[in-house]
Design a protein around this nucleic acid. Structure first.
Length: 470
RNA sequence: GCUCUCUUCGUCUAGUGGUCAGGACGCUGGCCUCUCACGCCGGUAACAGGGGUUCGAAUCCCCUAGAGAGCGCCA
């Protein structure tokens, strides 16, 4: 039997970090076994489901590169099928109509809580005849005794006593089927072999198995992956900052970095930290996933992103960087070749956003000097080196404005003045970049270009003069 | 409250009866060096607690504590 997994988010928000990891695990497991990965949108909650959320989820999946073989399927388009199954259950006496008013249910719950019992439906309508023409819901007749065992690929054997379960609603009074029913029917119809999903569904699983059995089907394999928690150890939510996958794209993260981070959350392969998607597929096994929840650690993600930024194809990074430069009001076509800028700057940036900021000096004059850098390198003693550099640069032909010539020129000026290279290169760097950090000085000069270099040296000289005057 | 689940450095993890408890991120000392980043060498820091079983326990059993999830006409 070929492996078939599915990712089944409900479109009530963006694709979040936890969902993305579940999707990744489903994807990897299917790919590893040469099976199929299916996307299903669980939108039976008409109240909260939105088209925007569907788009956001699709966008997230596409960005991450988690391509699915079938779908997206929408549960709202399968209501007829669910109702057919519900009617079948009804006809076979495996489900029943219930018209218990909400007040009764509410009172029941309060009484049970008061008696320190788990709130459960008491089966009041199990053997009553409820008029089909009056408002009612359909409940599944859960077995009253015995044990359901969830044989989980990650948790192991988890037995549940049927007496802990109650007769859950499978069709609402408005005729819409509920989650537990539609999931079961879909997984069955879509021939899902491995249900890989969040930990929060473990308690639902025995109910679903019971429905499956009532339908005469064998349950699929289950794997419940632990949750991802925020820095404070509570369930990841908006107040922990960015939780949507798309937010990470906006913050300048690479999809492969996010994927790499996510796969290592709850899973490992020896001491290995870096994985390409193909390597993940090769090494991943759902059985190796940890049982304990893990805390989302942004600094490790950032480190991974830097690793990928360092080794990614410059042409691709250039493409991804353009919009971020745009946000800063920079048009890359107005300056040095973007790909050259990327080659020089990308290894020093942690995100695309940072890369854009660090690269801005190549395209426009900076606003002001970094205070500490100016204080350290643009004192009176910087005047002479800068003047000599200006003179030397002025004499250079545009054709000679190459890293080799520039390096030679800077070194020569230092030599002539009997200064260490740092005493010359650093003032120059602050003069043309605005701060004391940049690629090698010759590379920096080349990117800035002759005109801007001379203009900025002039500015630095004025700055130095203003210090002694002021 | 009830049911289920989980528990190794701050964080992600390796470990499946005998290890100086390993790696990674972070933090940190140093080297490299025109600066930054990278890289390299080093440091920091953990078996939740208590009982057993065993010659020997992070590893097996029990209890306690803490954490998470579920208990909806949400998914």
């Amino acid at each position: 039997m070929t492996v078939r997994t599915r990712f089944a988010p409900s479109p009530t928000g963006y694709l979040h970090i936890g969902g993305a990891r579940t999707a990744l695990f489903c994807y990897l497991y299917a790919r590893k076994h040469g099976g199929q990965f299916i996307l299903r949108i669980e939108d039976t909650d008409l109240e909260r489901s939105t088209a925007e959320s569907v788009n956001a989820i699709l966008e997230g999946m596409t960005w991450l590169g988690l391509d699915y073989d079938e779908g997206p399927f929408f549960q709202t388009q399968r209501f007829d099928r669910y109702n057919q199954v519900i009617d079948e259950l009804l006809a076979k006496g495996l489900a029943y109509r219930c018209d218990c008013p909400k007040e009764r249910l509410e009172k029941l719950r309060i009484d049970q809580m008061a008696r320190k019992q788990k709130p459960r439906y008491d089966g009041h309508c199990r053997n009553r005849r409820v008029d089909p023409d009056r408002p009612h819901v359909i409940r599944f007749k859960n077995p009253v005794d015995g044990v359901v065992v969830v044989d989980d690929l990650i948790r192991g054997r988890v037995p549940f006593a049927n007496e802990e379960l109650d007769d859950l609603i499978i069709r609402r009074s408005d005729g819409a089927p509920t989650y537990n029913l539609s999931v079961v029917v879909d997984d069955l119809d879509m021939r899902i072999t491995h249900v890989i999903r969040g930990d929060d569904h473990l308690n639902n699983t025995p109910r679903q198995i019971n429905i499956l059995r009532a339908l005469g089907a064998d349950p699929p394999h289950y794997a419940h992956v632990p949750m991802i928690l925020g820095e404070d150890g509570t369930r990841l939510s908006k107040r922990h900052g960015a939780v949507s996958v798309i937010a990470y794209r906006e913050m300048g993260y690479l999809p492969e970095a996010l994927l790499n981070y996510l796969v290592r959350l709850g899973w490992s392969y020896g001491d290995r930290e870096l994985f390409t998607l193909d390597e993940m597929i090769e090494y991943f096994d759902i059985k190796d996933v940890n049982k304990a929840p893990s805390i989302f650690n942004a600094s490790k993600l950032t480190w991974l992103n830097q690793q990928y930024l360092q080794h990614a194809d410059p042409a691709r990074i250039a493409r991804l960087l353009s919009p971020h430069l745009g946000h800063l009001g920079i048009d890359p076509s107005t300056g040095p070749e973007l790909i050259e800028v990327v080659k020089a700057m990308a290894p020093r940036a942690k995100t695309l956003v940072e890369l854009a900021e660090l690269s801005a000096f190549c395209y426009r004059d900076f606003d002001s000097y970094d205070e500490a850098s100016a204080k350290k390198h643009l004192g009176p003693e910087a005047r002479l080196p800068l003047e000599r550099l200006r003179a030397a640069f002025e004499l250079m032909a545009l054709d000679d404005w190459t890293p080799e010539q520039l390096k030679y020129t800077v070194e020569r000026v230092a030599e002539e003045l009997g200064l260490g290279l740092a005493r010359v290169a650093q003032p120059l760097r602050v003069a043309i970049v605005g701060r004391a950090a940049s690629p090698g000085i010759e590379e920096t000069l080349r990117l800035v270009g002759k005109t801007a270099t001379l203009r900025r040296i002039e500015r630095a000289l004025e700055y130095i003069a203003s210090l002694s005057a002021g």
